[in-house]
Simulated assay, not measured.
Amino acid sequence: MPQFDFGHVFWSQIAWLAVTFVVLYFGVVRLTLPKLGTVMDAREASISGDLAAAKAARDSAGAVDEAYHAEMNRSREAARSAIAEAKAAAAKSTEAKLAEAGVKADAALTAAETRIAKAVAKAEAEIADAAASSAQAIVAKLTGTEPKLDAAKASVAARI
């Protein structure tokens, strides 16, 4: 077999190998690698630009987020102070209404106590008059002489 006859073919195969290697090497290195390099450079530039844009967007989002949280905190504090003011105003209003109601209740209590005192005094006077009349009638029945009404009233008042 001629392909195994290394004595005659070896140097020619080495020569063809060298020629093929040189052609392929220069074909790949000179023609393909520059095109591949420009594609890789463009891709790296695109990726770097995208990364820079993403970093800028992240920084911008962080600033917007901080501003948002700061505004939310200010709004919460404003709401808390408004609620505290409303509670204070409601407490003052309630205290004023309670004070007014207390004054009205005290006035009504005083008026009721006055009416009760008058009714008690009137009842005591009527009881004293009835007791004096009864005493006068009893004395008249027992002794046969009718005492004066003023004397009976004085006697009843002394006993009460």
Score class of each variant (00 low, 15 high):
F26P: 03
V28P: 00
K55S: 10
S134F: 05
E113F: 10
A57T: 05
F6A: 10
I138M: 11
V139M: 04
A54K: 05
A105S: 12
D59G: 14
D65I: 07
K141N: 14
T114E: 12
A18S: 13
S60G: 15
A57G: 05
Q13G: 09
S133W: 03
T32N: 07
L24Q: 03
A111M: 06
L109S: 15
Y25F: 15
K97N: 01
V29F: 13
F26H: 12
L142N: 04
A117E: 15
K35R: 13
T20D: 08
V23H: 02
A151E: 15
P147W: 03
P34K: 03
I47R: 10
Q13T: 06
A45K: 10
K104P: 08
A15S: 08
D150A: 15
A18L: 15
S155V: 02
A108E: 13
A128H: 02
S48W: 02
A52T: 07
I116P: 00
K153E: 06
F10W: 13
V28I: 14
Y25T: 12
S60Q: 15
A57K: 06
A96E: 15
D41N: 10
F26C: 07
D106Y: 05
A151L: 14
A82N: 08
A89G: 04
R76K: 09
V23T: 09
A123Q: 10
A135W: 05
A112K: 14
Y25H: 14
A90F: 09
Q3I: 09
A88P: 00
K141M: 14
E100L: 11
L24G: 05
I127L: 11
A128C: 01
